[in-house]
Design a protein around this nucleic acid. Sequence first.
DNA 1: GCCACCGGTGGC
DNA 2: GCCACCGGTGGC
Length: 216
Amino acid sequence: MEGKPNRSNAAIGNKTSFSKKTSKRVWDSIAAYTVQCERCSKWRFIPTKEKYEEIRERLAEQPFFCETAREWRSDLSCNDEPDVIQDGNWRWAIDKPSIPQPPPGWQRILRIRAKGGTKFADVYYVTPSSKRLRSMTEVQSYLIEHPEYPCLTASQFSFQIPSPLEENYVRKRHARSITLHGDTTMRVNPTSWVGTLLHMLRIQLKVEVCEGSSAC
DNA sequence: GCCACCGGTGGC
DNA sequence: GCCACCGGTGGC
């Protein structure tokens, strides 16, 4: 989590929101959102998912500085200690930049999968009528079938998922061992891709760990 | 029966 | 190797 220049990162507590029409609970498995200051490289918590989505959408054109956080922390500056220090209690993931904010009334939900699976996370959109859309194909079909959203296009949706900082969180497809005669050993091919992503991406999510933590 | 979660795979 | 998509299924 040491600061590299020109990156930004953000965080939210495990968030439960409610569909207005159905009061159905929708869970986001993200514990916190943080953005990195472009100037001092310190990571700053972002108070809400909505604010984080707003910052993330514009980050390429509108860099984040500690002063930006004065909207919710009036006295914050680059002289203050970083909000985030790396410890063993959290998992982190690098988010993708320039993801559009979900349309008004819609939710973009990120669900983190368990460690050792074939995929780190799933993104889905919840429509104002609480329908869950899992892919761009489903979004396009939905928009065609629902002309009440004439202004929405597929370009306003993104199913990109963050990348975990923890190496080997996701089982590598080509490193899978073939299970024979009850041998369930899993081999994972180590790579250095995390370092590469750190230089390319600008946003991180803090993912809550629920492995025996009393906080869970 | 529904749905959240997960795995598999085709395409790039 | 990564991503997008979607089918299967276990838990409710």
